[in-house]
Nucleic acid binder design. Structure first.
Length: 263
DNA sequence: ATTGTGGCCTGCCCGC
DNA sequence: TGCGGGCAGGCCACAA
């Protein structure tokens, strides 16, 4: 599913759209338009603009507008099945949990450029969305660049499960269910641990493994390419010690962890 | 404010 | 072979 590594790949793909004038925006399903702006308003705001930058904040992709839309921002979210295509090319090769079918009916939002190319958000389950001027201030520090002090602040003073806290986009932006399981597994931390109970040494360990995991996944090309992932199925075993993994719900999400080495 | 829960959304897989 | 229930989870509205 799209977590930070996938959105980063989408961002790089979207850089190929910078400076190309938008002829018009096509809204495939009006429910895909989020926030305060109506589909009509969004279409009007996008007509004739160019984009000056493609940025990523957590799982939010932001295109900064230039020209007629100077100062406005286009936010793209991908839910768990959303993918980005530019001129027919995909941002990532494979998206776990999402269909691989080439189904134009799933094109929920399309930017047509005057040069004939197009940028498409394709999302079968429509859990993503497009929003004019999304509020980025509600997002926590980006997981790829978070400092140890920022991570500590995101986790301390809360009795909520550490996994829940890691996935809270208001505290830390970019970590989803798969990456959270992978990072906690590598850090030998039980996902159910009270967030405030982590020691300074555990904070350091978690920060280290978060960085290494994200860089591994960026290099491998997806959040589904972690070391734990192949065993993240009922009956799966810990790749480190062979213990059968525990499967349960933590923070409302299916979680797998090793009862032998995660404490 | 913080935290938990349910709902949205729909393709896919499994068992009957 | 077809059918239906359960599952997947990012995000948001809502309740306590």
């Amino acid at each position: 599913m799209p977590e930070l590594p996938e959105i980063e790949a989408y961002r790089r793909l979207a850089e190929g759209a910078l400076g190309r004038p938008v002829e018009r925006a096509v809204i495939g399903d009006r429910r895909f338009v989020r926030g305060q702006s109506s589909p009509r308003h969004l279409r009007a705001a996008l007509k004739g603009v160019t984009f000056s930058a493609a940025r990523r904040h957590g799982k939010l992709l932001v295109l900064d507008m230039a020209g007629p839309g100077q100062g406005l921002h286009l936010g793209l979210r991908f839910g768990m099945t959303g993918s980005l295509l530019l001129d027919g090319r995909a941002g990532v090769e494979h998206l776990v949990y999402a269909s691989e079918r080439d189904e134009p009916a799933w094109d929920r939002f399309t930017l047509r450029f005057t040069d004939g190319g197009r940028l498409v958000v394709r999302d079968p389950r429509m859990l993503g969305g497009v929003e004019l001027d999304p509020d980025e201030s509600v997002l926590g520090p980006d997981a790829l660049t978070v400092t140890p002090a920022q991570l500590r602040r995101a986790l301390e003073h809360s009795d909520v499960a550490v996994k829940t806290r890691l996935m809270d986009q208001h505290r830390l932006a970019g970590v989803g269910n798969l990456i959270a399981d992978e990072v906690l597994w590598r850090s030998s931390l039980d996902p159910r641990r009270r967030s405030s109970s982590l020691t300074p040494a555990e904070h350091r360990r978690l920060h280290h493994h978060l960085q290494v995991t994200l860089h591994d996944m960026l290099q491998r090309g997806g959040s589904h390419l972690g070391d734990l992932m192949p065993e993240r199925v009922p009956g799966g075993r810990c790749p480190r010690d062979g213990t059968e993994l525990v499967r349960s719900t933590v923070g409302g999400r299916t979680s797998y962890w090793c009862p032998a080495h995660q404490h």
